[in-house]
Amino acid sequence: MPRLRFWLLTAALTISGCGGPYPQSTLHPRSDFGRAVDHLFTDIFWWAAGVFVVVEALLVIVLIRFRHREGRPAPKPTHGHTVLEIAWTLAPAVILVFVAVPTVRTIFATAGDAPADALRVEVTGHQWWWEYKYPDLGITTANEMHVPVGRPVQVAITSADVIHSFWAPALGGKRDAIPGHVNRIAFRADAVGDYSGQCAEFCGASHANMRLRVLVDADSVFQAWVKTEQGGPAAPATGSLAARGKEVFLHSPCLACHTIQGVSPGVIGPNLTHVGSRGTIAGAIFPNDSAHLASWIADAPSLKPGSLMTRMKPPLTDPDIAALVAYLQSLK
């Protein structure tokens, strides 16, 4: 049955000309949490489809069969029918029992409890980017979460400012990031891949620009990533453009907001210690390349409305920006 529904939906999408892939689809679950929700939705979908067909068909049949015709005798003034009323009160009630029982079972199964050995990740929503901390590994990063395939992950979600909602559809349902509350989800990813997601709760001007990626890595890849992240920032070679970029960084307002381990202490914006190793910047909306980095540094608000990273005053010169870009890219 799930197969058939999948093909139905795919057919509908193909007819409409959409090919895929769908990196943010809820219909292609890649974790135990995602699959549990998908199974439940599949059940409900079929009940709903059945009811839809029966009731709409009934409506169409009635409209055709009893449409006005000349000479039709006056209708019999029926006022009601007790047995019928009872029947169509019970019918939906019974169907709903079939929906409610798996619902409650799934609620408790997906309540966010993970085994004790699960990898713990703390997610904090900010306007408009995501901060990830791995308390057991001593890692802080932004927007791109790395988790190992096949191992349980416990995600604790909160917010530093307004309410956001953490949503990586392939890995399961969303949970709100609420200041002063901690929400938990738990999942075990079952396929290596790059899954996109984004903030689902309206959170101000750049809500649309608060995207995220979850990279599910093979265990060895994940271990290597952990190792890099745990190390300090790369030191630029003396005399290189990157070294000049570090000087620019140290004399710019950047350091007030961004941490580079051992270099600057700011905590307002994302931690940049290993920013060069990330695939995207600015809330996972732009690829991490020289051109995007340069224009981002020069004028973030024009790329991301409302961005708290304001246009720099006085503006940095182009050579300074180029040096800064080289430095940031060197922070692998």
């Binding site: 809820t26 549990a36 929700v37 998908d38 439940l40 939705f41 409900i44 979908f45 009940w47 709903a48 709903l96 929906v99 619902t103 799934t106 609620i107 997906t110 559809p169 399961g172 349902g173 969303k174 949970r175």
Partner: peptide, 11 residues
């Protein structure tokens, strides 16, 4: 009805 079911609603 499909989002009366909390787990489905999370998606």
């Amino acid at each position: 009805v499909s989002h009366a079911s909390p787990p489905a609603d999370l998606q």
